[in-house]
């Protein structure tokens, strides 16, 4: 019987090594594998390269991991002003940033996961972010060659998971998780609920278990379920 579940986040992240590259799902706090990231902080690997849309949402999980000083490079589209830990390390020259437009980041990960050698995109053509990139004119429009992105690990956050590694998300949790699941050597998921095989309707399996190596069921990180003092507008 296949059983990809592990009993703790600590066990789930144990194989991470110094110098590893890690994809982290999430857009803001939604779909961010915050408990896996906290376990990684305790695990202590260094010189990490993180691939993520942002660089932290506060002094916990991703923000704290960056603040710990064990991250060498971040590949991201929007290391937002709220990522104070990243800001400090970046301005001190301690972290390298590879800034990638969000759609290009997504597609590079998709290319990595689906076996493509790269793709041409119009995004960023003629801008500063095109520097050093091969260009090609197709039907009169300029495109940039972008190369695939893969990683040693991907950490995902899903709502339901089963022992086969099938995952289902809710709300806006899917974001980067589904695509990152395809592009890493070892894929680890944090889920809210472990369900029996078949309980996730086949039509609702957003990440099929073929992509997932390990999953752990854990309560959500307390900072992630905390309501802000004032619910902000969109």
């Amino acid at each position: 019987m296949i059983d990809k579940t592990v009993q703790s986040c600590r066990e789930a992240v144990a194989q991470v090594f110094d110098g590893a590259s890690i994809m982290l799902g999430g857009f803001g706090n939604v779909g961010m594998p915050a408990q896996l990231i906290e376990a990684l902080r305790e695990q202590g690997s260094r010189d990490l390269t993180l691939i993520s849309n942002g660089a932290g949402t506060g002094p916990y999980a991703l923000g704290a991991l960056v603040g710990d000083g064990r991250v060498r490079k971040v590949i991201a589209s929007f290391p937002s002003p709220s990522a104070a830990e990243f800001r400090t390390r970046y301005l001190a020259g301690e972290i390298e940033l590879e800034l990638v437009p969000q759609g290009t980041l997504v597609e590079r990960i998709r290319a990595g996961g689906c076996g493509l050698g790269g793709f041409y995109t119009p995004t960023a053509a003629g801008t500063d972010l095109a520097a050093g990139k091969e260009t090609r004119v197709i039907d009169g429009q300029e495109y940039l060659l972008e190369l695939p992105l893969k990683a040693d690990f991907a950490f995902l956050k899903a709502h339901w998971g089963d022992r086969l590694g099938n995952l289902m998300y809710r709300g806006t949790m899917r974001n980067f998780n589904t695509v990152m699941a395809t592009a890493a050597i070892t894929v680890v998921a944090e889920v809210d609920r472990l369900v029996a095989v078949g309980e996730i309707p086949p039509d609702a399996v957003h990440t099929p278990g073929i992509f997932v190596d390990r999953l752990v069921c854990v309560e959500r990180h307390p900072k992630v379920v905390e309501l802000p003092r004032e619910a902000s507008a969109t």
Binding site: Q102, V106, R110, H159, R170, N175, F176, L227, S232, T234
Partner: peptide, 28 residues
């Protein structure tokens, strides 16, 4: 508030009738 529903500005949002939810590849 549904903690799993935020929009691009990272504030909480609701869904309009007929809304669809999807991942980044489809969004882009």
């Amino acid at each position: 508030i549904d903690l799993d529903l935020i929009s691009a500005g990272k504030g909480f949002c609701t869904l309009a009738p007929g809304a669809a939810l999807f991942d980044q590849p489809l969004s882009f």
